[in-house]
């Protein structure tokens, strides 16, 4: 099964992991690492490598990072390989989709197909007029 690795600023990765498991229950091969205010790039790289060892690269790893161009994204990008890919700018709909989309024979290509469209499609602006004004 493909491993899912969250890598974000602050405690966001662990927070998303906790929140996702509240919604879909405890998950296998699911790790979270963060970068604190006092940590440098090298600390993050070490933590990423340790999490990747836990997940194992043979079955594939999908790294989800919070912000394109952020330090978590930049450092994770240096660890990519044929079986290790990254999506930067993930949200909760994307996270739940990839967690639930995994099976023993899912490929990384299948898991990440149209993922940015999917993430965008699940950002919905609830205006007062739409909800209470009968505009929909």
């Amino acid at each position: 099964m493909i491993g899912i690795l969250l890598c974000c600023h602050g405690t966001m990765a662990q927070g998303f992991k906790d929140a996702a498991e509240l919604i879909v229950g405890p998950q296998q091969k699911f790790e979270a690492v963060g970068i604190g205010p006092a940590q440098g790039r090298h600390d993050l790289k070490k933590a990423l490598k340790a999490a990747m060892r836990l997940l194992g690269t043979d079955a594939g790893i999908l790294i989800l990072t919070d912000l394109p161009g952020g330090t978590p994204c930049n450092e994770a990008a240096m660890l990519l390989g044929p079986t290790v890919q990254m999506v930067a700018g993930f949200n909760m709909p994307i996270l739940l989709r990839v967690l639930l989309g995994r099976s023993d024979d899912t490929t990384l290509a299948q898991l990440t197909e149209d993922i940015s469209t999917y993430g965008g499609d699940h950002i919905i602006h609830f205006t007062y007029d739409a909800v209470h004004g009968g505009a929909v």
Binding site: D66, L67, P68, G70, T71, N74
Partner: peptide, 8 residues
């Protein structure tokens, strides 16, 4: 951190 979230 060179280019990072704050900068972008």
């Amino acid at each position: 951190r060179l280019l990072h979230g704050q900068v972008v």
